[in-house]
Nucleic acid binder design. Structure first.
Lengths: 186, 186
DNA sequence: CTTGCCTATGCAACGAGTTGCATAGCAGGA
DNA sequence: TCCTGCTATGCAACTCGTTGCATAGGCAAG
């Protein structure tokens, strides 16, 4: 399970509330881990119970109060332990690929719009990552170790989105080539 | 949920037992969807209960009997329905990336061996996919629609592994650049 | 002949992740 | 004024996915 460790990393980079963490998971952290606010709140409570994090109630004006979490020493130890353990290389789950292969038994042309929709989402993500890269990692800057590590992870997100866009173009070309010809119509 | 649909696609391409499906999910289907035999058996029973698939008991000699599943018309209908529905673009979950970013608060050099291990796994997968491509999709062949769709999905798996290898090299270079310098030692 | 591996299916328990809903104050636009 | 949307946290119920274990016959190596 990496969610609790992703939260530890994020809180070490910058303490914050569950809500703020949820937004980070929608943005900067989203290119290597995702989570909903429900998961985050639940895991934060468990981590607090286990002494991994500490809470501080913060009153705000014009907004609801929030609970700001920061990492306690046992949490830091748990992260170090986990860093030293091996983890399984991830396996892919791509339901669009299931659909593409399933299109052999349905309507290939009908998948074109869906594929284009996915392409638009990935193009938007790529644009967002590239903008973030320009903003946070200007070419001339001297980066400390933390920033260099953040940057190499972001480069991974960028590479993933570029690769995905190229593949979706390949899928679109294939579907269009097959368009009109309905194979295996039963 | 795409597991049941992935099973439908696989059974339409070729009927088989739960055990055989599990092996396909370890091999050809593994580059776009994964599942353990537990999940597969459970989902197969549900699909049978719902009339999506039909079972036939097959006695074998020298081996345990098996139950061979094939897709029934309602299953085919369910697949068509699902193909017409939009699905959410997948989100990534890459725990190695969590570790890389976490290395800022631990030992970057200690991650090198782990990263190399991941690299070896992905290199092996790429080699396997490329061998499968040469075997199943020779350049000169005329491919029918189903084979073309299988091929484009395989190209996606190949592109993913190549991209991942490149990124892991990038990560290794970054970790080695930081090697020795322990940032933020608390 | 025993140990380990492969085929083949399955139960039980647990942990991870999703979905729908609830609350509650404030801000801004129609 | 009402409706929508944002901040902020949370409960309850459910499904998905993993892990450990069990059974059971056959095969091959040591």
């Amino acid at each position: 399970m990496a969610l609790e460790h992703a939260i530890l990393v994020s809180l070490l980079e910058q303490p914050g509330s569950g809500y703020e963490l949820a937004r980070r998971f929608d943005r900067s952290i989203g290119y290597f881990w995702t989570a909903t606010h429900q998961q985050i709140y639940r895991v934060l409570r468990r981590m607090e119970r286990d002494g991994w994090v500490e809470v501080r109630d913060v009153a705000q004006d014009g907004r609801p109060d929030k609970k700001v979490y920061s990492v306690a020493p046992p949490g830091r130890g748990a992260l170090s332990d986990w860093l030293a353990e091996p983890v399984e290389p991830e396996s892919v789950r791509h339901s669009l690929a299931v659909k593409v292969r399933g299109a052999a038994f349905g309507d290939p042309a009908g998948l074109i719009a869906e594929t284009e929709r996915h392409r638009a989402v990935h193009a938007e993500r790529l644009a967002r990552y590239l903008a973030g890269e320009q903003r946070d990692f200007p070419e001339s800057a001297e980066l400390d170790a933390g920033a260099q590590l953040q940057h190499v992870v972001l480069r991974g997100g960028i590479a993933y989105e570029r690769m995905t866009l190229d593949w979706l173009d390949d899928v679109l070309a294939t579907l269009r080539r097959l368009g009109g010809a309905h194979p295996d119509p039963h």
